[in-house]
Design a protein around this nucleic acid. Structure first.
Lengths: 204, 204
DNA sequence: ACCGAAAACTGAGGATAGCTCGCATTATGG
DNA sequence: CCATAATGCGAGCTATCCTCAGTTTTCGGT
């Protein structure tokens, strides 16, 4: 369904695929998903419509591919943050700050692409599932850290999942629609402080 | 764009519109937005394709209309919960439980529809703005209650907004993709306990 | 350098889904 | 009971997604 129908093997075709994705990102962002036609994407990318369909089985696959790129980056950033925790073994405030910082980086790194994907991508059920999987993965990592610190209450796994989901939503809200009169840094600090309190309960 | 092209005035046409929306909700939910055709929606609703386009200018309008319905219900439920607080003046755990319960009610009422809308609704700026406005409204009500209780830290308004955003995301996650091995009630209790701790800090 | 094979590219056009429009049917209210 | 408005209809127009048969470019071996 969303798997590339053919893998680009030569340099030429890799550039073609990159040009198609770049054109798709621009047009989806400017006109929205429905109003963008695959023929226009091909035109803007400077390739024929046939070439587009050599690498993408259908229109949804364009969006899926853009999202996969972004999600892969998310996995990388989160894994990096978790590795840092494994090395530095921070206390609870440090752990929470690390999580908040990593999530914030995902939103501020490429805000335009992130917003496009958040606005348009969820139309594909497959991507929702993928997002949830990443959530669970991050939650598992956080839960391990909570257990190390002896925090997280009766069910550290559940607490970690709730924290990941909550932080994600709060940071997104702060970036998309920042509360008036507060700096971005102040919002991040508030989120971190709040979760430090929420998670600071001894494990059973 | 998303406004109905014609308002149903007679009882007959109101039933037609209701049947179309019901059919759209079912088919979108079962097969997804892209895979659902407007002709099939009309067919399942038992009306002609022409009638559908008398009341909905385009396919997106079907989804938008479903979202408007759901948002209106959200406003009603949240206002009701806030009224209850104004009357009963609960303590912090009671306040948080009330909020969590109200949000949960929004999700459990028609879980399939809610999931459909959250996942697939076109994030038209208009709808996003409506959603944020509802969020702010709920946050304002919660902030007033926090001030009454002398809780919420330095910035009760910000804390309330973060709480609303967080609870929304967590309840949604629990309904859409429930953590295995935990009952729904256990998840709600965990969310409430967590936010009670997070908000239980004296106002400055 | 040359050649055969594989990869990449092309774009007219088939299939299909969104949407229109002229007309038929049903309701309203004077 | 009739004039008028509201509602319903569905064949078909239009636009979009996507295919496919054929051409061009690149690659690896000799």
């Amino acid at each position: 369904m969303s798997t590339p129908r053919k893998r680009p093997r030569q340099q030429r075709s890799k550039e073609t695929v990159a040009a198609i994705l770049e054109a798709a990102a621009q047009l989806f962002g400017r006109h929205g998903y429905t109003a963008t036609t695959t023929n226009r994407v091909a035109e803007r990318a400077g390739v024929s419509i046939g070439s587009l369909y050599q690498y993408f089985p259908n229109k949804d696959a364009l969006l899926t591919a853009l999202a996969e790129e972004h999600l892969a980056e998310a996995v990388q950033v989160l894994d990096q943050a978790l590795d840092a925790c494994a090395r530095e073994r921070p206390d609870l405030p440090g752990l929470v700050s690390g999580l908040v910082g990593a999530v914030a980086e995902l939103h501020t790194g490429r805000p335009r692409l992130h917003r496009l994907l958040f606005d348009q991508a969820p139309r594909v059920p497959e991507l929702v599932a993928r997002l949830r999987a990443i959530e669970r993965r991050a939650a598992a990592g956080l839960a391990a850290e909570l257990r190390r610190l002896g925090r997280g209450g009766d069910d550290p796994e559940l607490a970690a999942l709730l924290a990941v989901q909550g932080v994600e939503a709060q940071i997104h809200g702060a970036v998309v629609d920042p509360p008036p009169g507060r700096s971005a840094a102040a919002c991040l600090a508030a989120v971190a402080a709040l979760w430090t309190r929420a998670l600071d309960v001894p494990a059973r």
